[in-house]
């Protein structure tokens, strides 16, 4: 859509409350129903303005569906919508890339892991066989994976908390608090996933 139009956010576009628990079959059904409304297939004979509107609306619908269908993308979108006030449009790739500074809660694990990875790389450069360094890598992965599980369940709990706050029409301050906690966990989670992806790459060298 052109940048001058004010967009409804993805949740209201699909007729959903701004909550993190979404019933998948319900979302699918809403998506199909709206697709039948907007899809360019049905506007082939329409005036140019309607054709354009159909293209813009169905693009926006597809973006909304994509962002809300996936639980992780959904959290990311909600955070952006609530905290940055820029919910309309594409969900930007989340922060917490490989080069970002490690979140404070993870410093210890990251430090230990990097040391281990350096040693393993040295060993490999020195001609160590795969069955020597691979088990070390696997062992190094375990504490990170434990952290990942911990974060997933924390994210789940916070999501439920947010939904309850929406239902109870909780005051702004309480909502902000939940969102900040969600954001912190979310960034850590992204960081952990990058670490795990890094280990996976090393394993496949």
């Amino acid at each position: 859509m052109s940048s001058t139009t004010v967009q409804p956010d993805f949740f209201s576009f699909l007729g959903l409350p701004r909550k993190l628990k979404i019933d998948a079959p319900d979302l699918e059904q809403r998506y199909r129903a709206l697709s039948r409304q907007f899809h360019p297939d049905y506007f082939y004979n329409a005036p140019a303005a309607e054709r354009r509107a159909s293209l813009e609306r169905s693009s926006y619908l597809n973006d909304a569906y994509r962002a809300l269908k996936n639980p992780v993308a959904r959290i990311e979108y909600l955070l952006k919508l609530e905290l940055d006030g820029q919910g309309a449009g594409r969900a930007e790739p989340g922060p917490g890339g490989a080069n970002a500074a490690p979140p404070p809660g993870l410093l210890e694990q990251v430090f230990a892991l990097n040391e281990e990875l350096d040693e393993i790389r040295d060993a490999r450069a020195g001609g160590a066989a795969a069955d020597e360094w691979k088990p070390r890598l696997e062992r190094a992965r375990q504490p990170i994976e434990a952290k990942q599980r911990e974060h997933e369940s924390k994210l789940e709990a916070l999501s439920a908390q947010w939904d309850a706050a929406v239902d109870a029409n909780a005051p702004e301050s309480e909502r902000r608090e939940i969102l900040s906690a969600l954001r912190e966990r979310f960034l850590e989670r992204n960081y952990i996933n990058n670490l795990l992806a890094g280990i996976e790459r090393e394993l496949n060298v």
């Binding site: 926006y60 597809n62 569906y65 594409r90």
Partner: peptide, 14 residues
């Protein structure tokens, strides 16, 4: 990347 593969079309990215 601005629009990921397997995105339903029509799709936009900016």
């Amino acid at each position: 990347k601005i629009i990921l593969r397997n995105s339903t079309i029509p799709a936009t990215g900016s």
